[in-house]
Design a protein around this nucleic acid. Structure first.
Lengths: 341, 341
DNA sequence: TTGTAGGCGTTATCAG
DNA sequence: CTGATAACGCCTACAA
């Protein structure tokens, strides 16, 4: 079964030429006779030759591989970004090695080390919520391996970052609720150690202040935004304690969808009693009743952008240093979940 | 900046021992003095040594890498499966190379070739809708590289397959609609060239027959199940032509969600006018109004299962041949979208 | 338990 | 334009 590996030596022997010539023929070297090249290509094909990447990588010290570390794969947003990265990378002949940190700093460090050992040509990261220090990225920076962040970025690191303006998005979402007449707006969000949620929160807070609404600590809630966390919060804090807001800004659409479903289940009208704004513009935001007002967060575009910056860097076009932070546009998409008037 | 690569030779020189001893120390070889080993480990760490996988792979002819080819990453189901695979693989020290075929046979063939050239130790595939022939997998089989399929499988190939019983799922879903009193049940689904949709369709058809309901070609519809395809179908075929069913079985939850939203928008009551059943048990099925009756399809579990079978094969536990097809359980989850009574 | 020597398959360099 | 040779970094017989 295990038929022996065909190497350039075998081709060389078959054609009675030297292995170096075969190598050149296979890799489109300029200094090679077209006829020789075609002969090589044909023979290689006939013999079922397949290039051995390891030998090639070992020799060339480049791998045509991009590493990606993200918090988790099973999120619509993250998988859209990955889809965007994969598309651009694949078209350029690059492979993707993907791993998930599952929100754990330890796993992230591990993953980063593996990526390093795999000699990825570049590393694209969205940080885990648990990550506090960035020492695991030092190796990459020291060695000049391009390091790019998207969405959840390491602000202190001198790397390219692709983000949205989370502050503005948070501000816009909150402002919209205020303009709909909301006076008691809850903010349900995730761990504040990351720029993403912190900036949205700051935007939320600023909007309240700008419109002379007092910000109180008890207005905002941090949890992991899983389905059960949202349901529990609503039932325990809002329903049982009769501590009812007239607006809620949640930082994901799925949590907003769960919130709406749960609130309606308990007899609240959306948006009349409580207006709701989500985040991301996932498909889920369009199919709830009422559909959810949200911030459009272009995941695929973000993935394509970050991949393209990296590839441009490889080819020498564009300059990683010049485009140190790329901010993608977002817009508020108004649907019925927030329209009181 | 570009500090030179530290190799086992550097460590050997620093400790005045031979490179082979260093190699043994680093890889926990049984025949090595513990003291020597610790010395090596410490020095390696101090010098910032990182193993070079390519050299190692080239030598060992094994890569600790698993290739995964799927139709697309930005689907909740697919990303759940990948999440499951990644988790299991990563824990066992394996890397994942992922690529998307984007439903194109040509891309899939390309991806397979890349995987082959990358010398993946195993390949996990869910076929694109466009794939008709499987010649691109021959290489793997010939060379004894484990090839596993999940969800959208190549039935003709002698490979391990992890699936659900799509026939039974289709049957159960349809039966449920019939039991709710539906007599004119539409089936909206995807390309029939793949087992997945074909089997669900067969199940649907069989249920109709078993309950003495005539099956007519015009009852079932094939499209790509994107949001716009669903909306267009409903508006053009159901609303405009007043060709209204009393039940619809769609083979994804997001399409079912879009269908419900569109139908309600046009004044239909769900489930009173039209009962709806979806597929997958994505979170989206829980938050629509009404929530969607669906088939629970365990994506993460499927990913974990397929990865575990592969890993067991590597370690010699379990036997790929003995477990030629693994069928995971599914259940019908009844929610309000289908409950007429 | 450790060292020596050779090779994994490719490509870069240099010479012709 | 082609060939010979060495080297990429690691691992493993085999010998000591």
């Amino acid at each position: 079964m295990e038929n022996k590996e065909i190497t350039i030596y075998d081709i060389a022997k078959a054609l009675n030429i030297s292995p170096s010539t075969v190598s050149r023929g296979l890799s489109n070297h300029p200094a090679i006779n077209t006829k020789t090249k075609n002969k090589i290509l044909k023979t290689a094909h006939d013999m079922g030759y397949q290039t051995n990447k390891f030998a090639s990588n070992l020799r060339k010290k480049t791998t045509n591989t991009i590493g990606v570390i993200i918090p988790r794969l099973d999120s619509l947003f993250m998988s859209s970004v990955i889809a965007g990265i994969e598309k651009v990378a694949n078209n350029a002949g690059y492979n993707l090695i993907i791993s998930q940190s599952l929100e754990s700093e330890k796993k992230e460090k591990n993953n980063a080390l593996t990526m390093y050992n795999s000699r990825v040509d570049g590393l694209i990261v969205s940080l885990s919520n648990g990550t506090r220090d960035y020492s695991h990225f030092k190796k990459f920076i020291d060695k000049g391996i391009p390091l790019l962040f998207f969405d959840r970025i390491a602000e202190e690191l001198p790397s390219t970052k692709v983000v949205i303006d989370n502050f503005r998005a948070g501000y816009t979402a909150t402002q919209h609720l205020i303009e709909q007449g909301c006076k008691k707006i809850f903010h349900i969000t995730n761990d504040m150690h990351r720029n993403v949620y912190r900036d949205r929160f700051e935007g939320y807070k600023k909007a309240l202040i700008d419109y002379s609404i007092a910000f109180k600590e008890e207005l905002f809630v941090i949890n992991d935004m899983t389905e059960s966390a949202i349901v529990n919060y609503i039932e325990d804090e809002i329903v049982k304690k009769q501590n009812v807001p007239d607006g809620i800004f949640l930082t994901s659409d799925s949590s907003a969808a769960v919130a709406i479903t749960t609130l309606r289940h308990h007899g609240f009208s959306i948006p009349q009693d409580i207006a709701v704004v989500g985040f991301n513009n996932d498909i889920i935001s369009k199919v709830t009743e009422p559909p959810i007002t949200t911030i459009n967060y272009p995941g695929v575009e973000m993935g394509e952008t970050v991949a393209r910056i990296l590839l441009n860097h490889f080819t020498g076009n564009g300059n990683l240093n010049l485009t140190n932070t790329v901010v993608l546009n977002t817009d508020l998409i108004v649907r019925k979940s927030s329209l009181k008037s």
